[in-house]
Design a protein around this nucleic acid. Structure first.
Lengths: 253, 253
DNA sequence: CTCTCTGGTATTAAATTGGTATTAAAAATT
DNA sequence: AATTTTTAATACCAATTTAATACCAGAGAG
């Protein structure tokens, strides 16, 4: 099931004149080339149908096809029978979001030695909150992974990952990167929504992070999804306040 | 209350027209996308069943499924057989990520009244730190804008923006959105790099935010750039930790 | 277990898409 | 002037998309 968009034209009509020295199909090709390369049609990357184009420009379908064919030869367009004409080289700026990386991958990219101390790994039933976040049936089984994260030797974060057992059957079956392990099992993380806020550390966590009670911390909740949109992992992390996170934002052009 | 109980619809019905150039399932997808991203259908909630949706919009179930499938591909929804369709995204995801928005624009898109209390606007020489962040010559002139940000009537953040006078000659020449004003002057912000961390509020800021001393806050440093990469603005903000969630979307490349 | 919710899928018909053959008028070539 | 090529129209063919109906399968309540 493909999604193409026979969107409401968006093509600017002009008057083509048969009396000009330039043949109609070339006049039309020129006009369409302008519209395409100027990016006015970039929104919908599909063109209106040949019949509709013929109508709006007051020429026959063959003329339209000839114009479109010459643009195809230039590499601007491609077509599919039964489907339509599509713009090839949309100068469409790819919207780059932050990359989804695991802690392990993240630290090594910053040249830090990542250390992990296991605080617990177990299988149990999902709490109502987890079931909601992971879209599970009530009391469905999940793996809980509780880890203390180190940068070199400094405690950096406490992380509690929750993954349904249907994606991660055995919490002891891996030792390094959770994401790498999930990828190996055919459940590659594809996208995540992350929510950050600032909190005061409760005594228990403060002790584990070797910080004074009530110290500020970055609280990060993350839901990770498979490519088909199914929730794969729910993570709640407390980072020490002087750790930081980068975010890039871009405007659309 | 069962987690899977479909919420009392809450879907606003519209009339879908087969005569429009856009196929029915895309018309429906568009409408549902609006409802979700505008926050009228909140994160974690279930959608009405496919049959019910088909009924309310007067189309077949297959059409509904096609619309829902395309939204799933966008990452907005996920489903579970025998259970239903669930909403992944929180409403402001779209705002925060795909667009570089100012506080003013951000708040109004969420239906909140954004208030601003001016704490100071002045022209002075850049500090060494600012000169570094903005890539200025030492002692080049900058505008300093210090604002208290309100959501409705609650203090939400303290913001200190620094902009070189070559981009913003007069700190008093605008009153609403700084970004809108800069765009009008031909200096459209195009990209931003943010750094977030958690801090304890110093007494001065705590008082202004009407919070107890030492309360946790999100400290956000932002550098905004023009399209050609020139630094345009440096902002240091303190958001109250209990009132503001930052949402970030991450994807694999 | 059964009954009734939920989503999943196969089959079908109609509409829409591009593809092609035929034809004729106009323009360029000989 | 005769011939060929280019241009442009009409009519019909084939692939695809759209959207409906009918039936299958998992989940949950009793």
């Amino acid at each position: 099931m493909s999604i193409n968009a026979p969107e409401a034209s968006g093509i600017e009509p002009i008057e083509l004149s048969p009396s000009l020295p330039l043949p109609l199909y070339l006049q039309l090709a020129k006009h369409l080339r302008n519209q395409i390369t100027s990016g006015k049609l970039a929104e919908y990357n599909a063109l209106p149908g040949e019949r509709e184009l013929a109508e709006t420009f007051g020429v026959s379908r063959v003329t339209v096809r000839k114009a479109l064919s010459s643009l195809t030869a230039e590499g601007l367009l491609n077509k599919r029978q039964g489907s339509g004409w599509f713009i090839n080289n949309s100068p469409h700026v790819e919207q780059r979001l932050s990359a989804l990386t695991s802690f392990t991958e993240d630290m090594s990219s910053r040249g830090l030695q990542s250390g992990t101390v296991w605080l617990g790994r177990s299988i149990s039933h999902a709490t109502p909150e987890e079931a909601l976040a992971l879209n599970l049936r009530p009391r469905e089984e999940v793996v809980r992974l509780n880890r203390l994260r180190l940068a070199d030797t400094t405690p950096l974060a406490i992380e509690l990952s929750v993954v349904p057992t249907k994606f991660l059957p055995d919490p002891f079956a891996f030792d390094g990167s959770l994401y790498q392990h999930l990828r190996n099992l055919g459940h590659a993380p594809h996208r995540a929504l992350q929510r950050l806020s600032a909190v005061r550390l409760i005594p228990d966590l403060a002790r584990q992070l070797e910080l004074p009670e009530g110290a500020p911390a970055l609280y990060i909740e993350r839901r990770t999804f498979l490519e088909n949109g199914t929730p794969l992992e729910f993570v709640a992390s407390h980072y020490r306040g002087d750790a930081y996170d980068f975010v890039v934002e871009l405007t659309l052009t």
